[in-house]
Design a protein around this nucleic acid. Structure first.
Lengths: 210, 210
DNA sequence: ACTTTCACCACATAAATGTGTAGGCTAAAA
DNA sequence: TTTTAGCCTACACATTTATGTGGTGAAAGT
């Protein structure tokens, strides 16, 4: 029996979903709320398996509710429910640990399927949502780190710089003279087209060199 | 008619998939290769709608093939095919613009469904894969940037430090004395629990303070 | 045999940096 | 009101770093 908690402000939809889910074998709706002003407490009290969470709600909205719940419970499966495959909301939901994101127009049979999938550890998503997620992912990871042709020694020095080592410490760490450290660093600056330690460190992160 | 190109090193599976897909209404297999050493050329020649790409192949593997194809064609849908929901590969595939990622044990009927879904712009994923993608997403965006309570002035100084400004430049940029700049920086170091510029800059990136 | 590249070392000077101390100001708490 | 706390500002001192100039030897490419 999959225990479901429901957050949905529209009375009709709330009733409809409750009846649909509660009336299906293997599902039970513990409770249905019209906002998630006290979501964290309610979740703690009911111990549901899956939460259906509408995104657009008066009061504490779905994303906030998600955060509040996740702050105290990283176990319960949370399915976000929305009318639009709105880019920003998908992003926010996904990055705050939602387990799935489905459109309200999902047919009832499919919805039950999704709930089951979520309960068993899956990540049900409407196709349009999945596409968006992948797109976001590839966008955010396409910095295509240029290769600055840093030699091994130079990479090592840069790493130590990033870690806050002083020239002197780097020298002793690498068993070379401080002057050698300096000449490596000079070379690094040339290769990265920067002229200060901070910029080099910043660039190391921006371009994911380390 | 959905035109499919197939990359799979195992002869049996290659034959099997070809027959399955080619024998289904609405699908046609343009060609099937045992590696993607010349994937980019082949894709350009065949103009497929969907590519089924095995990940583990001798010679150029699936991930490399994906990159090569994406380098010249961002349009064709590419479905990665693999035995394992291996974390690293999923990540690589997704970030290089794969449209879907499915396990080889997917039943034939489901497979055809996935191909259709991909062709129509969806992002089909096996449930276990979807779960992983979401997990990666929330991990990578949940550094839960601790709030170090940097004051506005301190944030401004830190930003300028990251951009490679010297103390002197920061002073003139902010219309304060260089000594004040130093005081701010000292305070920043305290708050970030570091004691050098490099570490502060590194922390700024790690914790996405800026 | 030649030049190029790379990792390494040295010295000197000016500039930048880390750190301790401290006053004035504002807002909130006692 | 006084106290407390945080922020912004400022100065002094010792150390570290940046910068420029010079050099060595070994390996790789021509």
């Amino acid at each position: 029996m999959i225990k479901v908690l429901l957050y949905e402000d529209s009375p009709q939809l709330r009733e409809g979903l409750t009846m649909l889910i509660d009336g299906s074998d293997g599902f039970t709706v513990l409770a249905a709320y019209k906002n998630c002003d006290h979501a964290a407490d309610e979740v703690a009290a009911w111990q549901p398996d899956v939460i259906l969470m509408d995104i657009d709600m008066p009061g504490t909205n779905g994303i906030e509710g998600l955060k509040h719940i996740r702050a105290v419970n990283s176990d319960v499966k949370i399915l976000m429910l929305t009318v639009f495959d709105d880019n920003k909301n998908v992003f926010e939901a996904v990055k705050n640990g939602a387990n799935g994101y489905i459109l309200k127009k999902t047919p009832p049979a499919k919805l039950l399927e999704y709930i089951e999938e979520a309960a068993s550890g899956g990540a049900p998503m409407t196709a349009s949502i999945a596409t968006q997620v992948l797109k976001m992912f590839s966008q955010m990871n396409n910095v295509q780190s240029e290769d600055y042709n840093l030699s091994d020694r130079e990479k090592q020095v840069l790493q130590l710089l990033v870690d806050g080592y002083s020239y002197k410490m780097i020298a002793s760490e690498m068993f070379i003279s401080i002057d050698t450290v300096r000449s490596h660093i000079k070379k690094i600056y040339e290769k990265l087209h920067v002229n200060s330690k901070s910029e080099a460190v910043a660039k190391a992160f921006k371009d994911k060199l380390l």
